[in-house]
Amino acid sequence: MKFFPFLLIFVIVASSISLERNEIVTLYDKNDAAHFKYYENESHLINWYEWWYANLKNSEEGVIAFFFTFGNLNTFSRLVGIFISYLNESECIEAIICHPFLPFHLDYEKCNVSIAGNRFYEENGKFFIEFSGRNLKIQMEMEAYGKRYGSEAKIKDWQWAGWYVAAPYGVGKAWIEYKGRRKYIEGDTYHDHNWGFSKMHRFSWDWGEFNVANRYAVIYGIAGIDDEMRGGVHFVNNSSHVFIPYDEINVEYLEWRKIGWAEKPVKIHLYGGNKSLGIDFYVELHRAYILGFKNEGKPYLLGKASGKIWVNGKEMDFESIGFYEHHGFI
């Protein structure tokens, strides 16, 4: 499980870069398809990464899933795999498969990833995950809402990050089998896709995603790379996407608690904005899940966001449950 915190760090840092471009395709979106073949002749292939992430959650339980690839996918120096977990108030049921020899298939027309017979794909405008492990089986269906958006940004030298949010918010359901039990859950969903070239840095970052009654989403991602902060806050609904860059907002950490192996903020205040979008809301810990090592593992945080936003001068109160993350320099 030492690999999983490393993967989570990459997910949020790549996700925090500000908006550069915005494209929508009626059914399938090539921005959510694989990208490796377009860069397979580049240098630094050992530093290539690409993955598809999704979650489903309600106030009591949830599912998180990563289908990931690292390195030169044309050689056995690659790393290909899946991490998936069912989360509830008493335990985290996890499965990870990961090694260079796993059979896999990538689709360059749409989201359609297959790794060792497990799938993450889009069909008729919905997203599906099918996973069958030794001790855990999950089938998940996600209906996506909100205007898709994404960005590409230079990190440093030859390093750059691509990020695409194919499902800013939505609803979903999952069928789970583990330890001889069967579960069915429903909740809010989120899905994004990350790719690029990068090596390890000293990162500091915050990220959170909150679905507000399937009317809109508030998503924030802020990362520090060599002490330079990037990212900001996104407002997304079915017809628009509005972004506030980091230098126009403030982030205050009001309360902290040791969770698993690390001190984590359990109350955060985000406020600021511009003429297009203003924010003044709090994120407070709702539930902490521990991945990997029980009480000493990797914290994965479910938060409650509440406060106000202003979109083109219109004020709205909101409250929502969603996942959030924070890391200091590592």
Score class of each variant (00 low, 15 high):
Phe127His: 11
Thr69Gln: 02
Ser132Ala: 09
Pro103Gln: 07
Asn118Phe: 01
Phe67Glu: 03
Gly273Ile: 05
Cys111Ser: 08
Ile46Ser: 14
Ile244Pro: 09
Val25Cys: 12
Ala14Cys: 14
Ala65Pro: 01
Ser198Gly: 13
Gly125Trp: 05
Ala166His: 08
Phe318Pro: 04
Pro168Phe: 07
Val311Cys: 06
Val165Ala: 15
Phe10Ile: 13
Leu87His: 07
Gly292Lys: 05
Cys98Val: 05
Met229Ala: 13
Gly146Tyr: 10
Glu50His: 09
Phe101Asp: 14
Ser114Arg: 03
Asn194Val: 10
Phe127Ile: 12
Lys304Gly: 05
Ser77Cys: 09
Ala223Asn: 02
Val311Met: 05
Glu263Trp: 14
Asn112Glu: 09
Val25Asn: 14
Phe235Gly: 03
Asn312Lys: 13
Val171Tyr: 11
Asp206Cys: 12
Lys298Ile: 02
Phe83Met: 06
Glu186Ala: 09
Val165Pro: 04
Ile259Gly: 10
Leu301Pro: 10
Ile268Glu: 04
Leu277Val: 08
Leu27Trp: 12
Val11Lys: 07
Phe243His: 15
Val266Lys: 01
Glu152Trp: 10
Glu315His: 00
Asp247Ile: 02
Asn74Thr: 07
Lys57His: 11
Ile244Ala: 02
Phe293Gln: 06
Ser85Pro: 00
Ile9His: 12
Gly221Pro: 09
Phe67Ile: 01
Glu61Asp: 10
Met1Thr: 13
Leu73Ser: 03
Gly272His: 01
Gly322Asn: 07
Trp207Arg: 11
Asp192Gln: 07
Val283Arg: 08
Ile9Asp: 15
Trp195Gln: 04
Glu141Arg: 10
Asp317Trp: 09
His99Met: 06
Phe66Ala: 08
Glu263Phe: 13
Leu79Val: 04
Leu27Arg: 12
Gly292Trp: 07
Gly272Trp: 02
Asn72Gly: 10
Gly150Met: 06
Asn250Pro: 05
Gly162Phe: 08
Ile96Glu: 06
Lys147Arg: 15
Glu296Met: 10
Asn214Gly: 12
Asn295His: 08
Tyr271Ser: 13
His286Lys: 15
Glu89His: 11
Tyr38Arg: 14
Ile290Trp: 08
Ser198Val: 13
Trp51Pro: 02
Lys126Leu: 02
Asn214Lys: 14
Tyr324Gly: 09
Ile330Ala: 12
Ser90Gly: 05
Ser16Leu: 11
Arg134Gly: 10
Ala305Asp: 12
Ile84Ala: 00
Phe67Gln: 00
His269Asn: 07
His327Glu: 04
Phe66Lys: 07
Glu255Pro: 03
Pro245Leu: 01
Phe323Ile: 00
Gly180Trp: 07
Ile24Asn: 14
Ala144Phe: 11
